[in-house]
């Protein structure tokens, strides 16, 4: 982020320099020079790759990988990178970086290492740029202006793609729908609930209700620190939607903070069935289901005899 800000200030200071080239519109000049530079990068591929790998070794990154492996991966990243510089499309590089991560992590590497080597590549190429244009400072500035935003965008895109990937993985991990008894599901929620996660949770729960033919669902929010009005309303919606599918929801583990928030926010709680803790919730759910377990296989035509058993309860 910081780099982008720096670059912007520099760009702001630059225009007078461009004004010195009135014959060529500088956007066009930029593009042209960037393409020239890309060509230069292609021609000096091996040399630059080796330089870059040296930097990687110096920074003690990717130590878990052999020289050959590092070289193969590095040339691949290099080609993708140059491609992205030329086309402006970072998708292929993002995808590649993800698969690279999958290869690096089992070897003891980490995501940040992949991001760092991409940053190193950016700097290696910037050095090469300086070497190429050191005699013509004006041109150097123009190429740098074209190169920097593109390079930053690539680094940024790669980093963001990892964050998204991890968020996705965490999300999937953090909302398991568990079946504890026949027709009884438990949904323990841990961590902060944002709207997106709440939405995903609801979808998973509703699918779980249908797939597992659930009749009662216990949603445990012991692990949820806070809640806002949007998420609170979402919870209520989840309860409602479950009802539309014929299942009732018991919410357990509501902290006093959350309870207070809900009341203060004026969330409509008339439909919410809350029980103190998960244990109580499961007991309640089992009580609900216990009577069902006793029933004959349900079918309208064949009325069971279990009614006898309960006759005393009712009279």
């Amino acid at each position: 982020m910081k780099r982008i800000v720096e670059k912007k200030t520099r760009q702001g200071a630059n225009p007078p320099k461009f004004a010195a080239h009135p014959t060529v519109p500088h956007d066009e000049a930029k593009d042209l020079l960037l393409l020239q530079f890309v060509e230069h990068l292609r021609q000096n591929r091996m040399q630059l790759c080796e330089e870059w790998i040296e930097h990687i070794a110096q920074a003690e990154l990717l130590t878990g990988m052999s020289k050959e492996e590092t070289f193969t991966e590095a040339t691949s990243v290099y080609d993708n990178y140059v491609e992205a510089l030329e086309s402006g499309s970072v998708e292929a590089l993002q995808a590649y970086a993800r698969t690279l991560c999958e290869r690096v992590i089992p070897r003891g590497g980490e995501t940040h290492e992949v991001v760092e080597i991409v940053l190193l590549l950016r700097d290696t190429l910037a050095r090469s740029l300086l070497r190429k244009y050191q005699n013509d400072f004006k041109v150097f500035n123009i190429v740098l202006d074209a190169y920097e935003p593109a390079a930053n965008r690539i680094a940024n895109a790669v980093a963001v793609s990892f964050v998204q990937q991890q968020e996705e993985a965490i999300r999937r991990l953090s909302t398991p729908v568990l079946q504890v008894r026949e027709r009884l599901l438990i949904l323990p929620i841990i961590g902060v609930l944002d709207t997106r996660r709440a939405r995903q949770l609801t979808e998973q729960l509703l699918r779980g209700i249908r797939d597992k033919r659930a009749k009662v669902v216990v949603v445990d929010i012991t692990g949820v620190p806070t809640i806002d009005s949007k998420v609170a309303n979402h919870l209520v919606q989840t309860v409602e939607a479950s009802r539309l599918m014929g299942a009732s929801v018991i919410i357990t583990g509501m902290s006093s903070e959350i309870a207070q928030t809900l009341v203060t926010l004026g969330v409509d709680l008339s439909k919410v069935n809350a029980v103190g803790d998960l244990q109580g919730g499961i007991e309640e759910a089992e009580r609900l289901l216990g009577y069902e377990v006793l029933r004959d296989p349900p079918c309208a035509g064949t009325e069971g005899h279990t009614g006898e058993k309960y006759a005393s309860t009712h009279s």
Binding site: N273, E284, R287, L288, Y291, E292, L294, R295, D296, E303, G304, H305, T306, G307, E308, K309, Y310, T313, H314
Partner: peptide
């Protein structure tokens, strides 16, 4: 509601 459900559970023999 829960109580009602419970009491209502048995089949109407």
């Amino acid at each position: 509601n829960r109580r009602a459900d419970r009491e209502g559970q048995p089949r109407s023999g």
